[in-house]
């Protein structure tokens, strides 16, 4: 057996260890200080909303981005003082890139595009290494909005858990034990 072919299987874990999620693995660490309140303009928020709804559409029998408050959750993530500054910068930079691609390819803002147009702009963005990492990171956070404890602002009323028949974990964290207070 070739030893090297296994080296690509990075970070094997064992014994019901949950794979590490490292934000830092996803992008270079260009550090720009974060000025509170100056991050997401209303335009960017609208863009975020369009994007999360595209990623996670509402359906009659299944919650979508709106029902799990994905936009609110992501906005909170971006403002979370515990979030690594480089992650924040990366996330915000992605909005600019998305708009840029949208304008370049369609001459329109992303929020004004039809579903199909949005899809093709996102797939174009995905083809760049930055775009792929960025879209994957946003999707990761949408999954957090879907399945994290509602105390963090997503998964409204446990909608994500209910939809997926997932038994809510217990004991769940009270306000004063949210992760950034530990």
């Amino acid at each position: 057996m070739d030893r090297r072919q296994f080296l690509v299987r990075m970070g094997a874990t064992s014994l019901a260890f949950i794979p590490t999620y490292s934000f830092l693995s996803t992008f270079p660490s260009k550090i720009v200080p974060f000025k509170k309140g100056s991050l997401l303009s209303s335009k960017q928020l609208a863009l975020l909303e369009t994007l999360t709804e595209h990623f996670f559409p509402t359906e009659p029998d299944a919650p979508g981005a709106r029902e799990i408050n994905a936009t609110g959750y992501l906005a909170w993530v971006i403002e979370d003082p515990k979030l690594d500054v480089s992650v924040r910068t990366f996330l915000v930079e992605g909005f600019t890139q998305l708009e840029h691609v949208s304008r370049q390819k369609t001459q329109k803002e992303f929020s004004q595009l039809s579903y199909d147009e949005q899809e093709s702009v996102l797939r174009i963005l995905e083809d760049t290494p930055f775009g792929h990492r960025w879209l994957k990171t946003v999707l990761d956070f949408v999954m957090e909005a879907l399945l994290s404890d509602p105390i963090y602002g997503g998964n409204t009323g446990g909608a994500g858990w209910k939809w997926l028949h997932h038994t809510p974990p217990f004991p769940s964290p009270p306000q004063n034990k949210r992760y950034f207070l530990l």
Partner: peptide, 24 residues
């Protein structure tokens, strides 16, 4: 930390990794 600090919180344990040092 004690039992009063441990909840089934995937953000705490695994995605924000609060029980280990900041890798930066």
């Amino acid at each position: 930390l004690t039992e009063q600090d441990f909840y089934k919180d995937e953000l705490a344990c695994c995605r924000r990794r609060v029980y280990v040092p900041d890798l930066k």
